[in-house]
Design a protein around this nucleic acid. Structure first.
Lengths: 263, 263
DNA sequence: GGCAGCAGGTGGTCTAGACCTCGCCCGCAG
DNA sequence: CTGCGGGCGAGGTCTAGACCACCTGCTGCC
């Protein structure tokens, strides 16, 4: 038998709590996967699941459809449904500096250069899609990795989004504070990337020679449809590379089960 | 009535040609959209479609589900199903230089610097995941935009992938030739981006001063799971910026109907 | 021993209903 | 004129079946 035993799945469906059954089942399956199913292992068959939880098969399929859409599991006709290997991610992540450095295995640190309220200049107003003169919080830092300068970083946030932020200490991780204190979880954004040469002041901060190549990254970050953060960063070219995955428009990625699904 | 008239939809379902009904219906709807539905307009209701084509509503939903998954259309409870505005794409495209420049509204051109067969050096062998000494086609060009130097570009392609390529003229658009003559359609890839300073030879080619900042982009491009192209490009920083969309891991983009769906 | 074919299990597709909530609109009452 | 409440039509969820194509493993024949 390809499929695993449905009776070993924990949990029950509550038909009267208002949560759609397929959502409940989907989460039960998700839990079951993370707790008991290594990549490549089989899930119980749709019919088994339907019987186990007393549901119609179409309802079970709806739950499974959702997980297939998330690319958590994968259907193979005639064989069963299988847990996928964690996929290579074709999406650049919107991460904070601290997260990014930790991912790269370096110790992040920061030296605050300024933390103040300013009025939006014409340029900043345009970048942040606001009226000129709108109060902004300006947060400028020298960011270090493993105790060595990595980048000079300047964030601009509409002041009305973060009342009281300036009263306290400058935050260590900006995105953490925005999310935990103000509920501002960045959902999406865009980076504009270019190469530039170090100005004298930036060069001094980054401990490189004037004119050294730097990676300049301007970022707009959004919550829902309103921009919450505009930032400009100058990264030392000798210490920082960017990795960008690409996908060909209109071409669906090739399937890659190949093998490994036999019992 | 929110929904449009189902009887005005062209096409019929063929129940005996082996193509799943929901696939046929999906394509009929897709055609109907491109031909007769501006963004924001309503589709016929699920029940109308079911009646118009003599199908069960669940089957109609399956067709619509697919298009919703593609983000072509959008469901709004209590209102109907609507054609989405063309979405902002959260995915970097794997495009060739010619495509990219045309998209930016500039006239691409190229001056071939070399077009030859070489053996893979230790470095190239590692980058292309091949044995050292494997024959490669090396294609080095000075790329122009609007008749002004834009970048120096060097492609390496395993020679066995492109038999006879060197016999002819150097191609104008490399990706076009790879796809049309050899069936090699790049499916995905990755860019490594960094800032660097112009070496004397590169500076001369690009018509900039030695030490000027350049954007260095190394690209690995794949067909299925094998690498077909490794390239290194040096872009003039004053003429080229990269745009990279970002998505927060684990956060689903917020709905954005908002308005504009009233009749 | 080997191979062909069949049986049983899997996902794929489809039906014809059911009842739910949600949003809009219109008509009635104040 | 205004407000509110119901009617109606939209999508959302769910059922209990049906038949299909596909894959595997077993069985029995050669």
């Amino acid at each position: 038998m390809a499929a695993s035993d449905a009776s070993r799945m924990a949990g029950e469906i509550d038909r009267h709590n208002g949560i759609p059954i397929y959502v409940q089942l989907r989460e039960l399956i998700r839990t079951h996967i993370t707790e008991a199913c290594p990549p490549g292992s089989a899930l119980p068959s749709e019919r088994d699941l339907a019987e186990r939880f007393g549901l119609a098969r179409m309802t079970v399929r709806q739950a499974i459809d959702a997980l297939v859409g998330e690319e958590v599991i994968e259907r193979v006709v005639g064989l069963g449904t299988f847990v996928r290997k964690p996929k290579l991610d074709l999406q650049v992540k919107l991460t904070s500096y601290s997260e990014e450095m930790q991912r790269r295995g370096m110790v992040p640190a920061a030296k605050v250069l300024s933390f103040e309220q300013i009025g939006a200049s014409a340029f900043l107003a345009r970048e942040l899609q606001l009226e000129e003169g709108t109060p902004l919080v300006r947060f400028r830092r020298l960011l270090l990795a493993d105790n060595e300068p990595m980048s000079v970083d300047e964030n601009f946030i509409p002041a009305h989004r973060v009342p009281g932020l300036l009263d306290g200490e400058p935050p260590t991780s900006l995105y953490n504070v925005l999310s935990e204190r103000y509920g501002l979880v960045m959902e999406w954004g865009e980076d504009m990337i270019e190469a530039t040469a170090a100005s004298p002041s930036t060069a001094r901060l980054l401990n490189v020679e004037v004119g050294s190549p730097l990676l300049k990254i301007q970022r707009h970050a959004f919550v829902a449809r309103s921009m919450v953060d505009y930032s400009v960063s100058y990264y030392r070219a000798d210490r920082y590379k960017l990795w960008v995955p690409l996908q060909r428009p209109g071409v669906r990625p090739t399937r890659n089960y190949a093998s490994g699904y036999r019992s």
